[in-house]
Write a protein that binds this DNA or RNA. Structure first.
Length: 429
RNA sequence: GGAGAGGUGGCCGAGUCGGCUGAAGGCAACCGCCUGCUAAGCGGUUGUACGGGUAAAACCGUACCGAGGGUUCGAAUCCCUCCCUCUCCGCCA
């Protein structure tokens, strides 16, 4: 959410931001609503001031044993007038909020303007893409043949966009989670958190998923709970409605959670395999920091995620999302994309964003500035460190062997009981 | 699920029969004094949001004592609904 005052005083800048984003949202009605709201508010406040003064007077008179019935009679009317005037406020404020809540974050000046995903410039590329002397198979074929992935039976249990992992596949998923958490906590200085996997609507509003993107979420019927689509929601909301001490910043947290996404509107997209699932595992990185630090923190956050891919010897590239591809709440986002041999292209495996004060304003995440003693909004950032399922996909495909087995990246072997290769298990599945 | 207790400022914690309580007192923080340093001590300052006002301040108004309604000239204080926390019992991984 943007600051009302900022919008009011920088209408042109906001319009320019919307244009850069290719957003269909407009500021239509904002000025009139804002003026209407302020006029009504000021009229109500004048009446309230009158009533407050009179009430005090009545108190005085009564204490001294004087008659105050005339004043009380007059105030009865004033109170009625207040009620009448006030009645219009909720509607105005509601419409005002609607406009305000629909405005996306202002992109950072360094974000390139673009029309579509293809306009995202590559920032850097790492690693050598494997060359295969045999026909490349995709992770579905590899995993099914090795009997470590089972999509058919997952569909029986749950439905489309679910996956069942077995044996070494399940072990690899668990190993990756542990590996990622260990690196981020021991080497990158994040505090591990195991949060609730359901959160209430206030939390979802805080990070910006609600009210605009409810259709992307799984809602638990009859409750105020939604399944988390990312650990960003519980982690960022840990400090919702809090005033932090400047000394505690930056806060760096990491968490493993399953993520649940309805994937409404992506029918027909990535239907095969585990690229796009209703449920997937992710290790998330979240930072809460001072405004001056957020640009730098985005760079280090992204680097922290990249280190994981490097340790796993998975080739990747980093792209900057152009204005049109940028998420609603983000001011700047780097996507890290891993090389997927079967598709002959890089696919998103992590998304690292700086939300500046956009989420902080919604979630009231503030800190006391030591220098001035003033309370200021913090900046929030987050990124996947990494999406675990997609990491398994990348490993299966990049490390596949001609005989159908899959080599395990060295860094992961200690987490898999020393296993260095996944081969077809004996016996029936 | 049953019974009880409670939710007040950055934190702890008073708020009597509704009126001069934005809210005592304490802690913390900040400024000054004092001190060889530290600690202690002494004096002072310190809520947030919105609106108005100002070059910027000062300043003025309104709202906020879990949330939302109600009663009243006036509600932190009374009434209703909901949420959350704690204790005991029951159930249970």
């Amino acid at each position: 959410m943007l600051d009302v005052k900022f919008v009011r005083e920088n209408m042109d800048a906001v319009r320019e931001a919307l244009r850069r984003r290719r957003s269909p949202v407009t500021l239509a009605g904002f000025e009139e609503l804002d003026r209407e709201r302020r006029e009504t508010l000021s009229a109500v406040e004048k009446l309230r001031a009158e009533r407050n003064a009179a009430s005090e007077e009545i108190g005085h008179l009564r204490r001294e044993g004087n008659d105050a019935s005339a004043l009380m009679e007059r105030m009865r009317e004033v109170s009625a007038a207040i009620k009448e005037k006030e009645a219009g406020l909720p509607d105005i404020e509601h419409r005002m909020e609607e406009v305000l809540h629909s405005l996306p974050n202002v992109p950072d000046p360094s974000v390139p303007e673009g029309e579509r995903e293809e306009d995202n410039p590559t920032v850097r590329t790492w690693g050598d893409r494997p060359a295969f002397s045999f026909p490349v198979r995709d992770h579905v074929d590899i995993g099914t043949a090795l009997d470590i992935l089972d999509f058919d039976r997952a569909a029986k249990i749950a439905g489309a966009r679910f996956c069942l992992m077995k044996g070494a596949g399940a072990l690899m998923e668990r190993a990756l989670i542990n590996f990622m958490l260990d690196v981020h906590t021991r080497e990158h200085g994040y505090t591990e958190v195991l949060p609730p996997f359901l959160a209430n609507s206030a939390s979802f509003f805080g990070t910006g998923q609600l009210p605009k993107f409810e259709e992307d979420l799984f809602h638990v019927t009859g409750t105020d709970y939604y399944l988390v689509p990312t650990a960003e929601v519980p982690l960022t909301n840990i400090v919702r409605d809090e005033i932090l001490s400047a000394g505690s910043l930056p806060l760096k947290m990491t968490a493993y959670t399953p993520c649940f996404r309805a994937e409404a509107g992506s029918h027909g997209k990535d239907v095969r395999g585990m690229i796009r699932q209703h449920q997937f595992n992710k290790v998330e990185l979240v930072k809460i920091c001072r405004p001056e630090e957020s640009r730098g923190e985005l760079e280090t956050l992204t680097a922290d995620a990249e280190r994981i891919l490097e340790r796993l010897s998975l080739p990747y590239r980093v792209v900057t999302l152009c204005t049109a591809d940028l998420g609603f709440s983000a001011a700047k986002t780097y996507d890290i994309e891993a090389w997927i041999p079967s598709q002959g292209r890089y696919r998103e495996i992590s998304s690292c964003s700086n939300f500046t004060d956009f989420q902080a304003r919604r979630a009231k995440i503030r800190f006391r500035d030591g220098a001035t003693g003033k309370i200021r909004l913090a900046h929030t950032l987050n990124g996947s460190g990494l999406a675990v399922g997609r990491t398994v996909v990348a490993i299966l495909e990049n490390f596949q062997q001609e005989d159908g087995s899959v080599r395990i990246p060295e860094a992961l072997r200690p987490y898999m009981g020393g296993m260095d290769r996944i081969t077809k298990a004996k016996g029936r599945s």
